[in-house]
Amino acid sequence: MSSARIPYVPLGAFYFFYFAVIGGFMPYWGLYLQSLGFGAAEIGQLMAIVMATRIFAPNFWGYIADRTGKRLLLVRFGALMITLGWLGVFLAREFWPLALVLLAYGFFQNAILAQFESVTMAHLGEQRDRYSQVRLWGSLGFIVVGTGLGVAFDHISLSVLPLAMLACALATWLSSLAVPDIATATRRDASHGFREILRRPAVWTFFAAHFLLLLSHAPYYTFYSIHLESHGYSRTEIGWLWGLGVGAEVLMFLVMHKVLPRTGEQRMLLWSLLLSALRWVMIGFGADLPAVIWLAQLLHAASFATFHAAAMVVIFRHFGDGHQGQGQAVYSMLWGVGVALGSWVAGAVWSVATAPWIFSVAALLCLLAWVLLHQAGTKASAPASRA
């Protein structure tokens, strides 16, 4: 497929608005819940509910998508349901009603991305190394909303957060309508069974490392803003810190199509894990040193961007077209398991005093993931090298 036929603008627009929703949710949802009077344990539980939907929703949708090949139709339906479901946030203020709303929101929000990744890869065709140039628009959407709301919330109430996210959700659905449909293989086309692929050492080792990395991210996703605010950072500074991290991600995505073919997926994954461990230690123990916190956010380029870009290539090469939806779904499911479990545990023990040690445990999880991938060695990279 030539680059002229790739619908960069519609694909990029969807990523922009999809991650704009997350740009409002991840930095400020914990603060919003705090403003409603919820404690750390309840915040951790509510965040865990959203993350936990990644355990079952992506696999359910992935199964349907691989059976029907109607990935884009499922994405459009899910984006519409996110918009409609988000209306419930305006009514829910108590724990259980809010938990039900977040369960519905997470079920669709966390399911459609895996299928849209497959749609994007299908449009890119043989130019899959240019995936990062499309995906970076999602990072830009996160930055625009994340930093913009940070500045706004130093002057206006956090109560407007649901309205901002509703607007972004509506734009996500509208942008999905502009993406051209494309034929994708169904499960019946696959020459190898899904379970057979999962049993490959290179595959299950990769997924285990991915799970540990996301488990380590849970304190960051759930309590980073609360952690900074407890150390005197303003909401404008918090917004810019989130934006800086995603900005570093954008810059990395811009060059990944050149760097990844030279470096290889295995080496890229290993470096990502080491730098992620360093990042968590800096955040945990450097909160009173602004220079350390700002520098740590630059490492988001490693803890997310480089790992994710390499992971997309690994998944595509191992799962091919016929099982692509399910492969993406497992990747997304493990994201949910890791962050949900980590959010629940972190919420149960979180305090200003325990924060450094919680981030230290996160660093150790990254090192464990590094050991798993390193021991796999050439076995993990051999399938990719033959592709």
Rank of each mutant, 00 (worst) to 15 (best):
M1W: 00
S3M: 13
F14A: 00
F14T: 02
Y18I: 02
A20W: 05
V21F: 10
V21E: 04
G23V: 03
P27I: 06
L31V: 13
Y32W: 13
L33A: 10
G39N: 15
Q45E: 12
M47E: 06
R54C: 12
Y63N: 11
Y63F: 12
K70M: 09
L72E: 00
R76K: 15
R76Q: 14
G88F: 03
F90M: 12
W96S: 12
W96F: 14
V101T: 11
A114R: 01
Q115S: 12
E117P: 01
S118Q: 03
R128C: 00
Y131D: 01
L136H: 06
L136Q: 13
L136R: 02
L136P: 06
W137K: 00
G141W: 07
I143N: 03
I143Q: 04
V145Y: 03
L149W: 09
A152D: 04
A152M: 15
I156L: 15
S157R: 12
V160D: 03
L163D: 05
A164E: 02
A164K: 02
M165Q: 10
A167P: 03
C168N: 08
C168S: 14
T172L: 11
S176E: 04
D181M: 00
I182C: 00
A183K: 14
E196H: 12
P201Q: 11
A202P: 06
L214S: 09
L215C: 14
L215D: 07
L215R: 08
L215E: 06
H217W: 08
Y220W: 06
Y221K: 07
T222P: 09
S225E: 04
I226P: 01
E229N: 06
Y233S: 08
S234I: 04
S234N: 04
T236V: 01
T236A: 15
I238Q: 02
G239W: 07
L241R: 04
W242A: 07
G243K: 01
L254S: 14
T263S: 13
T263R: 08
M268W: 01
S272T: 02
S276E: 14
A277K: 10
R279E: 06
V281M: 13
F285C: 05
F285Q: 06
G286Q: 06
P290K: 08
W294H: 06
A296D: 08
L298N: 03
L298K: 03
L298Q: 02
A301I: 05
A302T: 13
S303P: 01
A305H: 07
T306G: 15
V313K: 13
V314G: 02
R317C: 03
Q324I: 00
Q324T: 00
Y331D: 09
L334K: 10
W335G: 13
G336H: 09
G338W: 09
V339K: 08
L341P: 02
L341E: 02
G342K: 11
W344N: 05
A348K: 12
V352P: 01
V352C: 00
A353T: 12
T354W: 12
F359N: 11
S360K: 02
A363D: 05
A363L: 08
L364M: 15
L368E: 05
V371Q: 14
V371H: 11
A376S: 15
S381V: 10
A382Q: 15
A382W: 06
